[in-house]
Design a binder for these strands. Structure first.
Length: 586
DNA sequence: GCCGTTTTCGGCCCGACTGTTTTCAGTCG
């Protein structure tokens, strides 16, 4: 947090940074023992900010009334304005003066909530993770009321988990674990169905844990097989309804047992998101019903719950794809029959961004082409790096022309498949492109990306991107925000201006499917669609296997409410060629 | 702190598990 606040003095406040402040205030207020509904209100404000596609700072500067936004009232609107203008707010400073800020680190530890942290702080003076670890090892925690030896043990385990996992797991790793768990569950004959729920099913870019629902005719046998699995490092808990384990690598998995009649209700409940569930449950209440993980009930009679579809139908709504369940407009759309028909992997005709051994890829043109064709594609765009990315052996003008010639020669050998000679040209600090525009105009597909000088001011970064977009030789902006999850924050620019220029100049935006990038963010997918921009879902593959990253990009596109027609590479080869000729199909 | 077809007060999702104590509080999702 200190880092964020310092940063705000030298650059613009992003929505996520402001949201962090509200999350932080919620934590501190909870630690202080403040009103739980006020805590939730701060959390809701943080969520609302994260779901917003507009930059809230721009809205403040434009004089917009923020209290018109859902879950943001007069008080929060004033705080947001104050944060934008000063980098902090009085309420945060007050809370900091009342509660040691370091305590917020302690509530990140599993099994440790605000009340226990407060008790441990009050009675033992523990203020840091290190203090807590020492107190547990010296058996001082067990002396407190409501605490015991087991609590100490769990806290020590929790500290290990937090330190080892350092937060959330990226979707790619989670997928690997799901596949391993799937192999285990598929072998069990007593299991009639199982499903992964939670943020994994919603295709969030990272997951905190895995929620797996199981219908089993013999829960004890299933639980034993899970607890005895080689995947499991540690057992967190085990009962008739739920088995919780920690896998090697630190990821927590909760297996929850449900009967057939409740499976749909459980799937819905544990898929979340929390705010979507609350909204749907509220709708049930309005009909005089009760909705929980066991079904939809009228008085005590179950009237639905076997499938998600029957619950949504009972509530007079369309079934909502999991990726949309964020309480970001999907409830209203489902009620009005206006949900989008989301893009699917089977609709992809090609991949327009991959690398070869010519720069920093691991496979040849032929190998990448065979791999793409094997995935059912009609075309593959090869976009190696340009010379500015010297560490990746980027190509200069002479090498790219030779490379393009090689690509076209290989392409001739394929039937019903085209390899496009492209480039991932660097957008230099001042917005000029890293290769001669005359050379670029000879290529089939030009993706332009930023890799260096990522800390420019919003004004300079906007100018830089606009210059590239308006060059007339660029087809697509690669990984537009240049962020890397958990490692590098997004670059900052005037989104409205840049998106508007993309729409005017027919430049696409890439949805980069690399698991650590996933860039565009979902909220910007929606915004880009509204701006009338075509998007391209690309893998940025550096090996043939990386072409499978497409599923992660599809997930983000779906979270961004995108449909087939919003995506250029859902088009067959002929349509793509027509688009490149300037035919702006709808 | 937010919200409103019961609108300026009063309600805000709710059930399972754990660890503790022995009937319940805290945590989690």
């Amino acid at each position: 947090m200190t880092r964020l606040l310092k940063k705000s003095k030298i650059c613009f406040m992003e929505n996520t940074q402001i949201a962090h402040i509200f999350e932080h205030m919620a934590e501190m207020l909870e630690l202080k023992g403040g009103n739980q509904f006020r805590v939730r209100a701060y959390q809701n404000t943080a969520r609302a900010l994260n779901n917003l596609s507009e930059r809230v700072e721009d809205m403040v500067q434009a004089g917009s009334d923020l209290s018109k936004l859902p879950n943001i009232g007069k008080s929060s609107a004033e705080k947001i304005k104050e944060i934008v203008e000063t980098g902090t707010c009085k309420r945060l400073q007050e809370l900091k003066s009342e509660i040691p800020e370091s305590l917020t680190e302690l509530i990140q530890i599993p099994q440790l909530g605000a009340r226990k942290v407060k008790l441990i702080n009050d009675k033992l003076g523990v203020e840091s993770v290190e203090d807590l670890e020492t107190a547990c090892k010296e058996h001082r925690v067990r002396e407190l009321e409501g605490m015991g030896a087991k609590t100490e043990e769990n806290i020590l385990k929790g500290i290990q988990t937090v330190q080892a996992a350092s937060g959330r797991t990226m979707l790619k790793e989670a997928l690997e674990q799901v596949n391993a768990i799937g192999r285990l569950l598929e072998e069990r004959t007593e299991i009639s169905q199982w499903q992964v729920a939670g943020s994994f099913r919603r295709q969030r870019e990272t997951v905190g844990d895995l929620d797996i629902l199981v219908e089993s005719t013999d829960r004890n046998a299933t639980a034993d097989s899970i607890l005895g699995s080689d995947l499991v490092e540690d057992v967190i808990g085990s009962g008739q309804q739920k088995v919780s384990v920690r896998l090697y690598g630190g990821l927590q998995v909760d297996f929850r047992f449900f009967e057939k009649d409740a499976f749909g209700a459980a799937l819905m409940y544990f898929t979340g998101s929390k705010s979507h569930n609350i909204a749907v449950r509220q709708r049930a209440i309005e009909s005089g019903w009760k909705l929980n993980e066991y079904g939809l009930f009228e008085d005590n009679k179950q009237i639905g719950g076997k499938t998600e579809e029957d619950i949504y139908r009972s509530l007079d709504m369309s079934w909502v794809p999991p990726e949309l369940r964020e309480d970001a407009g999907e409830i209203e759309a489902a009620v009005n029959g206006e949900l989008p028909c989301l893009v699917e992997q089977s609709q992809m005709y090609g991949d327009l961004h991959c690398h070869t051994v010519a720069s920093d890829g691991k496979n040849t043109i032929e190998e990448m082409a065979f791999a793409a064709k094997a995935r059912g594609y009609e075309y593959l765009g090869i976009c190696d790096h340009s010379k500015a990315v010297s560490v990746a052996n980027g190509l200069d003008e002479e090498r790219i022309l030779k490379h393009a010639s090689d690509i076209r020669e290989v392409s001739e050998k394929f039937r019903d498949f085209r390899i496009m000679a492209g480039i991932e040209v660097d957008i230099l600090k001042d917005g000029t492109l890293d290769l001669d525009e005359e050379v670029l105009s000879q290529l089939d597909w030009v993706t332009a990306s930023t890799h260096f000088h990522l800390n420019l001011s919003s004004e300079d970064m906007t100018k830089r991107l606009l210059k590239a977009i308006k060059s007339g030789v660029v087809n697509c902006i690669g990984h537009p925000f240049a962020r890397q999850i958990g490692r590098r924050d997004p670059i900052i620019f005037d989104v409205d201006e840049v998106f508007s220029a993309c729409a005017d100049y027919g430049v696409c935006l890439e949805i980069n499917s690399q698991p650590e990038r996933l860039d565009l963010l979902d909220v910007y997918c929606r915004k880009a669609k509204e701006a009338g921009i075509k998007m391209v879902i690309s893998t940025d593959a550096h090996t043939a296997d990386d072409l499978d990253f497409m599923r992660f990009g599809i997930g983000i596109a779906r979270r961004g409410w995108l449909e087939k027609d919003d995506i250029l590479n859902t088009r067959p080869q002929n349509d793509l060629a027509a688009f490149l000729e300037g035919d702006k199909f709808c």
